[in-house]
Amino acid sequence: MFRHRQYDRSWFSLGFETLELIYHVAVRNMRKTHHNAVLGLVMAIIQSLLMLLVMYFMMSLFGMRRIAVRGDFMLYVMSGVFMFMTHIKAIGAVASADGPTSSMMMHAPMNPIISIMGAALGSLYQQTLAAAVILFVYHAAITPVTIDDPVGMMGMFLLSWFSGIGIGMIFLSAMPWQPEAVSIIKTLYQRINVLASGKMVLANNLPPNRRDWFDWNPLFHTIDQARGFVFLNYTPRYTSYDYAIWFALACILIGLMAEFFTRQHASASWNKRH
């Protein structure tokens, strides 16, 4: 009676069923931390706003306004903070998605890929709404916002999220083997990105020996490229969004292979006390 029955259906119908599952998983992930969905969205906005204000006052205090792009300094800070928050939130959401030993995997037709996609889309929805609300309030209440290339800027926003998915999948696949160690490494990576993302500096202004500190990070490339799309008088010369794309695809490929391997060997009894 409770068995999931398989019917002969078209790929179109199966696609809609998968999209429906992803939607419900995304909603479930958004309700994990807050039972009230509206409160969860408000908290996402507050977190982004607090990070924005901290970065604004920190850069003003240390005299870093003079190295920013000519234009709206708050928009310069936003371009870094929004990409950063989207990236690290995607990592956290995907890394904490339901794995192969989760009780959710016992319910057909649920599978880890749907869990990953649902977690990633839930994170993207929260961060997109937070960025949109903050930008609208700033535009309506303080000063009009002018973005040179909104489509390109949005592309970099999505690329920051996409690269976060790839890194998060690697953490997710390693989590069943050493949960405590992987959790520490994930948190450490997210904290390091506060500085390693380069959201407080411009790649064009960095000397080569300092730029080498950031070049490995895909978020550094997406933030710098985003500022090239946001500001008319800034053209990135030392970063490339191609690197971020290939980095994300490589991480996703590694994550998928590692997740498949983990799924074949993971056991719910690994972390049980004997």
Results as ranks from 00 to 15, higher is better:
122 G>R: 07
47 Q>K: 04
112 P>V: 10
149 D>N: 15
126 Q>L: 12
116 I>M: 06
52 L>C: 06
162 F>C: 00
56 Y>R: 07
159 L>I: 10
40 G>T: 12
97 A>W: 00
129 L>V: 13
99 G>W: 09
48 S>Y: 10
69 V>W: 02
55 M>A: 08
129 L>S: 07
94 V>P: 10
58 M>D: 01
121 L>H: 09
140 A>P: 04
95 A>G: 01
59 M>P: 00
102 S>C: 01
74 M>D: 03
77 V>F: 12
67 I>E: 13
50 L>C: 07
69 V>L: 08
143 T>Q: 15
99 G>C: 05
72 D>G: 05
128 T>N: 02
162 F>W: 09
112 P>H: 06
156 M>E: 12
52 L>F: 15
99 G>K: 05
111 N>R: 07
56 Y>E: 10
138 Y>P: 02
126 Q>G: 13
114 I>F: 09
104 M>V: 13
79 S>F: 05
103 S>C: 03
158 L>M: 14
114 I>K: 09
122 G>K: 06
132 A>Q: 06
39 L>G: 06
159 L>E: 01
121 L>Y: 12
40 G>M: 11
80 G>C: 04
125 Y>D: 01
151 V>I: 15
60 S>M: 10
60 S>W: 12
52 L>I: 07
130 A>E: 06
61 L>H: 11
57 F>M: 01
148 D>I: 04
92 G>V: 09
156 M>P: 13
133 V>N: 05
117 M>W: 06
161 W>N: 03
125 Y>S: 10
79 S>Y: 10
91 I>Y: 07
142 I>E: 01
143 T>H: 13
43 M>F: 13
107 H>D: 09
71 G>L: 02
74 M>E: 04
76 Y>K: 02
93 A>H: 12
54 V>I: 15
89 K>M: 03
78 M>N: 00
95 A>W: 08
144 P>C: 14
84 F>E: 09
